[in-house]
């Protein structure tokens, strides 16, 4: 549309859009502000100017040992994503570049496993974890998170790989590249951006997972999602500290999320909307 909107209309749209954006963002903004208040300020009524104290952050860290759930979150999110990539990259590669008549069926079936409600398998998974000693261990939860995100990882990689034109691989073959050369010099460099996007989105999904992390951990392996959920009990009713804990839990992923908007659409719609 090569038409220049009038400046007045643009001002109107801009004001409206910013109001909407700020209203939607407000709960997060207010939490950030509150985390910088003292406890007294936090319950002293509506106030957008904090005293910029970091005491709540220090308190959360010293009283609740914030670093343990934080470390657990990092290990679980990154670990489960890497594990999923190890399994998914070869599978997606094979399906994208050597498709058979079953490929479509296999992909749809993989997607269907994602449709299974988590709660449907709560009982057996819970019992298996109890009996095998996997309960409240990082390894058990890492494998769980890997399994629930595996279909999305395969799908995302598949849609990225499929965009690599087959003629380029054929050109490499004509140019004398062996299968190893083809993967090393042609395919991998071209696939890296797609793999990175997939990784980013799955770290976000794993970080925010809040069903299995709550069900399968108590203290040792509890990541931030489970740790924060425990604040719902009365001991957590300290507004500034709660805000500080919340900010620390969402800040890293919020920033990663801002960089992955496009991939988010693609990943979560299984390539149906690009």
């Amino acid at each position: 549309m090569a038409r220049v909107a009038s400046t007045r209309a643009k001002v109107g749209y801009t004001v409206a859009a910013w109001i909407v954006a700020l209203v939607i963002f407000f709960p997060i903004l207010y939490t950030i502000i509150t985390s910088l208040k003292t406890e007294q300020e936090a319950i002293a009524g509506f106030n957008l100017i904090p005293s910029f104290t970091l005491s709540s952050f220090e308190a959360v860290q010293s009283q609740n040992n914030y670093w343990r759930p934080f470390t657990n979150s990092v290990i679980l999110a990154v670990g489960s994503t890497l594990l999923a990539l190890v399994v998914a990259i070869p599978a997606a590669w094979a399906m994208a570049f050597s498709p058979t008549k079953n490929t479509r069926g296999i992909l749809m079936w993989m997607l269907s496993t994602k449709m299974m409600p988590a709660v449907a398998v709560l009982v057996p998974i819970y019992l298996i974890f109890l009996r095998t000693g996997l309960m409240d261990t990082r390894i058990g939860l890492t494998v769980m998170l890997m399994l629930i995100n595996l279909p999305i990882v395969v799908w995302m990689l598949y849609t990225y790989f499929r965009e690599i034109p087959g003629e380029i691989l054929e050109a490499a073959r004509m140019d004398g590249a062996s299968l190893r050369d083809e993967i090393l010099y042609v395919l991998t460099p071209m696939a890296v951006p797609g793999i990175a996007s997939t990784m980013l989105l799955n770290v976000i999904l794993a970080w925010n997972e809040a069903f299995w992390t709550i069900q399968l951990t108590t203290t040792n392996a509890a990541p931030l999602s489970a740790f924060i959920a425990s604040f719902s009990s009365p001991q957590g009713l300290f507004w500034a500290k709660l805000s500080a804990a919340s900010v620390m839990a969402i800040a890293p992923i919020l920033i990663m999320g801002w960089f992955s908007q496009k991939q988010l659409v693609r990943g979560l719609t299984f390539g149906a909307v690009k």
Binding site: P165, E167, I168, E170, A171, A172, R173, M174, D175, G176, A177, S178, Y185, V186, P189, M190
Partner: peptide
């Protein structure tokens, strides 16, 4: 004989250049 060993060179319709090189 695999393509690489036939001693032929091909120019593709899409050119098939390696975009990262």
């Amino acid at each position: 004989t695999p393509p690489a060993k036939r001693g032929l060179a091909m120019v593709f319709q899409s050119y098939a250049l390696y975009p990262h090189m």
